Amino acid sequence: GCGRGLPPPRPLDELPARPTGPSAPVPIDRKQALAYLSITRSHPRWLVERWLDRYGFEAADRWTSFNNEPAPVTLRVNTIKTSVEALTALLAARGVMVAPGRWSSRTLVVQQGNPLATDLAGQGLFLAQDEASQLVAELVAARPGQRVLDACAAPGGKTAAIAGGMADRGLIVAADLRPARVALLARTLAGCGCRSVRVVRLDARRTLPFAPVFDRVLVDAPCSGVGTLRRDPDIRWRCTPGDLPALAATQAALLRAAAAVVVPGGRLIYATCSSEPEENEAVVERLLAGGAPFARERPAGNAPSQLIDGQGQLRTLPHRDGLEAFFAAVLRRNGGA
């Protein structure tokens, strides 16, 4: 279902106008609303129809507007090598002005200049990483000395963030499948100075070669990516709803395999950069319905309460939070202390 070409451009005076009328979850003229969101806002009709039905027109309108705006450069400070304050000063000395992130204490948002063009870029002091992605890594909440598996780790930004949160003390096994991805993962972690990480190549969809010894297991699953259209606009024309069942099947296999290596009392964290339920809560529910000895758990630590839904899951929404649409659930394995 991927690989469709871009639709031909239409004259501006032919583009559907924004619907007007009383405030309601769905405008009276649904057909006009969908035409406006899909054609004028340049989004796939199947996707904006889903957003319209779940969140209403005003939210879908703000969401598509968000996706059509340039994304800021956001940095995650590598606390293994530096601090937020020290990096802010180093960047300022090179003409790069930054501001703190809204949600994560380790995020810096670039307001002026290009940090990637400075001599700091090759020193492993920071990684360019979306703020919502950083929040997922923080949900792992591993403590120094614990064992962690990052089952789909490339390119390595979340692994490095987990290592920083553990003060680089303990053991992190970072895994991926394709050789090029494994090589990229190893380069990222070496550049960040992560001494607690061991990189392995494996197919995380299959039975893993580990006993249930990990205190934390992160499955940052391959997904449609439809939550990140602002940063990767080509996705909107590559993927179709027909892609979702196969993606969900892979995600379910990854989560099932990962569940088997969590120590009793440990946590399994499942995450995607998708907005769609089939890839998110439905995958979690499939694992729990199959009898896996886990229960949902509200994230510990500093997870912003505004971003946690009624089931204790992280859910970032562009129209509400000013972040790409990410999802994450923390599952605690039964037993243990």
Rank of each mutant, 00 (worst) to 15 (best):
V182K: 03
G322S: 07
S305N: 12
L12Y: 04
L125N: 01
S65D: 13
L189P: 01
P241C: 11
N114Y: 15
V110H: 04
S275P: 07
P293R: 07
Q146K: 01
I80T: 00
I162M: 09
L127W: 04
P19Q: 07
D232P: 03
L108D: 02
R181Y: 02
V263P: 02
L90D: 14
V200F: 04
T250S: 14
K81N: 12
A128I: 15
S38M: 03
V217H: 05
D130G: 06
A329R: 00
D13Q: 14
H319F: 13
A33R: 00
V173F: 02
A248L: 07
L177G: 05
L149P: 08
G266K: 08
A204D: 02
T250Y: 11
A121H: 11
P318R: 03
L331T: 10
A86K: 13
A259Q: 07
P245M: 01
T88Y: 06
A174L: 08
R4S: 13
R333A: 05
R30V: 12
G164V: 14
P19N: 08
E58F: 12
L108Y: 01
W46A: 10
Q111A: 07
A328F: 13
G191C: 09
L317M: 11
E49N: 09
P293T: 10
N334R: 15
A329C: 10
Q251M: 10
D215V: 00
P7I: 04
P209F: 14
L52I: 13
P179H: 05
L287D: 00
L15T: 01
P277W: 06
T20V: 04
I308D: 13
L208V: 01
V262F: 08
Y270L: 04
E14F: 11
A154P: 03
L15M: 04
D61E: 13
G122Y: 10
N114S: 15
T107P: 10
R178V: 13
A92H: 15
A180I: 15
V199R: 01
G225T: 08
Y270I: 01
P241Q: 06
A249M: 11
V48C: 08
L127A: 15
P293V: 08
A204I: 10
Q313L: 11
D234A: 11
R230L: 08
W63G: 00
A17I: 11
L52G: 14
E69M: 12
D203W: 12
R238M: 02
C2V: 15
P179L: 05
P11C: 03
G265W: 07
A24E: 10
G291H: 12
G1H: 14
Q134F: 01
G95S: 07
V73K: 05
A253H: 03
R198Y: 03
L229G: 02
P293M: 10
L229A: 04
I269S: 03
V77Y: 00
G113K: 10
D150F: 06
L314I: 05
H43P: 00
W103M: 05
V199L: 02
P72S: 11
T316P: 08
L202C: 14
F126H: 05
Q129P: 04
E276T: 15
A175C: 14
